[in-house]
């Protein structure tokens, strides 16, 4: 067991030179009631990278994501051990400003979840909560975030239509814009393309390439092909454990663990 742990720790690439990691997950375990869903996970999220998290169902991917912006706090059964740092600050410190954390670590869900308001209101909700009141500034944010998620051209003439009337792919990009309008530092995408057609998926992957210039992106995906083509590093989770993490090319061409290779070649999961 300890041997495995050491291997895992070694497989996490250390920050190269002076670039510090954006987020550091240290010996992080999480449980819902009696059931442990994450077991002593160690992981680093670097600035300006796309980190893909892959693994079969109930491997703890989503729990890890929801721990990164403390959304799991909403679950009464949730408990955790270990630390997660954002720019060196422990996000589970009792004095953490949780809403501010969630603005810095934005999240897009698997199922598009626009609020039952207009496109414009959906995007300006977050910034308004953060205290932005200038109409001009809000307008600018709406445009820039819609452009960044490649939705602007499709909706620029109907910003007052209900966000729920858009197609599934558009709704998902609206949810992405909504998060981008917060000007976050880390983007968590939880299977953002699971319900989308290939064209919408391509749009979102295209957006990710642009976005990683400014943000760290964590992409949870069930689609190993998507991880292979749309990420810089990949982490493979199984039963709550981080099995292997490394540059995507390496992990997919030359996995260090048998279980990783079994998963990516489709032998299970």
């Amino acid at each position: 067991m300890t041997q495995v742990m050491e291997q895992i720790v070694q497989s996490v690439p250390q920050p190269a030179g002076p670039v510090p990691a954006k987020m550091v997950v240290e010996d992080f375990s999480a449980s819902f009631g009696e059931m442990q869903v994450l077991k002593r996970v160690n992981l680093q999220i670097m600035p300006c990278e796309r980190l893909a998290i892959i693994g079969p169902a109930s491997s703890g991917k989503t729990t890890l994501m929801r721990s990164l912006n403390r959304l799991n706090d909403m679950e009464p059964q949730f408990s955790r051990e270990g630390r997660i740092q954002l720019d060196g600050h422990d996000i589970y410190h009792p004095q953490t400003d949780v809403p501010a954390l969630r603005r810095r670590v934005g999240m897009v869900y698997a199922v598009p979840t626009p609020l039952p308001w207009s496109i414009y209101e959906n995007i300006t909700y977050g910034p308004r909560l953060a205290g932005v009141t200038s109409r001009q500034r809000l307008d600018a944010l709406v445009e820039s975030s819609l452009r960044a998620s490649f939705l602007w051209d499709e909706v620029k003439d109907r910003l007052d239509m209900p966000g729920t009337d858009l197609s599934g792919g558009q709704q998902q990009r609206l949810c992405l814009s909504r998060v981008l309008a917060l000007e976050p530092e880390v983007l968590l995408l939880d299977e953002p393309c699971s319900g989308l057609d290939p064209i919408s998926t391509a749009r979102i992957e295209e957006a990710m390439v642009e976005l990683k210039r400014k943000y760290s992106i964590v992409l949870v995906t069930n689609n190993t092909k998507q991880a292979a083509r749309a990420s810089d590093r990949t982490a493979f989770f199984l039963m709550g454990e981080l099995i292997e993490c490394g540059p995507t090319v390496e992990l997919f061409t030359n996995p260090k663990h048998q279980r990783t290779s079994d998963y990516i070649t489709g032998h299970f999961g």
Binding site: P99, R103, Y109, T113, P114, Y125, G126, L129, R178, L182
Partner: peptide, 8 residues
């Protein structure tokens, strides 16, 4: 959840 995740 959507609202909470947006920092509300």
């Amino acid at each position: 959840e959507g609202s909470i995740a947006l920092g509300a």
